[in-house]
Amino acid sequence: MAIETTSFESRGERCAATWYLPDAVGERWPCVVLANGFSGTRDWILPDFCRRFAAAGIAALAFDYRHLGESGGAPRQIVDVGEQRADLLAALAHARRDPRIDPRRVALWGTSLGGSHALTVAADDPDLAALILNMPAIDALSGANVEEKRKRAGVSRARTVAITLRLVGAALRDLSRAARRADPLYLGVYGEPGEAFFTDPELAPRFRRVAEGSPTWQNRVAARFLLGAPRYRSGTFERVKAPILICLAEHDLEVSADFIRAKAKGAARVDIRTYPVGHFDLYHGDAFEQVAADQVAFLRAHLGPR
């Protein structure tokens, strides 16, 4: 396997990217383009999947969204759904232009928020060869496990409402700052209730490891994201022409597996796998090994020789 740094342009800004290339010569390679989740940079989670895909003979392209990691864009640490989807489209075009890649055998892979991006892009791309959705966060309201998260945290409904109002207030103040071109108002990716997006105490070790092992990742995102979080548009799954593999976590507190199953029923070709773990567990240990093996098998089946 070879690892190469590369870049492409998205709406006038440079997006930093990395190729993971198979150790093979001859015919053009199939390829999968990976879209990371909320606040994710290409040195977090993605390398483990990319290495598995490249070892299986499938080129993998990971990239940083604008405003994050090593990509351009100011101010920093902005997560904008529409802009990130534009970055994914630019990454897909970059992969298809590469002379080493077979443009007829290109797949998309998206995890969490990136799953929402990948699904939306795939719905408008009839030439896509395959789509993998890893715990896709396709709807921030209807598709979120708000009640289960409240119970896990042991927080009353009244306290939940108060925390929600505090977060929305921060988002509104941040939006006002954006209109005045002032510095963003940031919330933690992980932290205390009312001050961060993820607050489950059991996630603390996970995020400590992220901070230690992913040097370009930052534990902060502009609060305005809350006012532009993704909502599912009815009929999106039905418009996807490519075969779909959906990997769900049975004990996911961030994404409702039931919601995903219900919406995916309309897809023409879909394989849904459920694993007995939580949302972030699919990235680690035995669960990761099983998920990666299933995804490699799926990609081999649908990106095989011409």
Results as ranks from 00 to 15, higher is better:
Met1Pro: 04
Met1Val: 14
Thr5Leu: 14
Thr6Glu: 08
Ser10Gly: 08
Val25Cys: 10
Val25His: 14
Trp29Arg: 13
Asp43Trp: 03
Leu46Phe: 11
Phe53Gln: 06
Ala54Met: 06
Gly57Phe: 07
Ala62His: 00
Arg66Trp: 00
Pro75Arg: 02
Val81Phe: 15
Leu89Gln: 09
Ala90Met: 03
Leu92Trp: 06
Arg97His: 13
Asp102Arg: 04
Gly110Tyr: 03
Thr111Ala: 12
Leu113His: 00
His117Ala: 00
Ala118Met: 10
Ala123Thr: 04
Asp124Cys: 11
Pro126Ser: 09
Pro126Met: 02
Asp127Arg: 09
Ala129Gly: 12
Ala129Trp: 00
Leu141Glu: 12
Ser142Thr: 08
Gly143Cys: 00
Glu148Lys: 13
Lys149Val: 04
Val155Cys: 01
Arg157Phe: 02
Ala158Pro: 02
Thr164Ser: 13
Val168Asn: 07
Leu172Phe: 11
Arg180Met: 13
Tyr190Leu: 05
Glu195Leu: 09
Phe197Ser: 08
Asp200Ser: 13
Asp200Phe: 00
Gln218His: 12
Ala222Ser: 13
Ala223Thr: 09
Leu226Ala: 07
Arg233Val: 15
Phe237Gly: 03
Arg239Gly: 10
Arg239Asp: 04
Val240Phe: 04
Glu250His: 04
Asp252Val: 00
Ile260Ser: 05
Arg269Phe: 15
Arg269Trp: 06
Arg273Asn: 03
Arg273Ala: 05
Gly278Phe: 07
His279Asn: 01
Asp281Leu: 07
His284Tyr: 05
Val291Ser: 00
Gln295Arg: 09
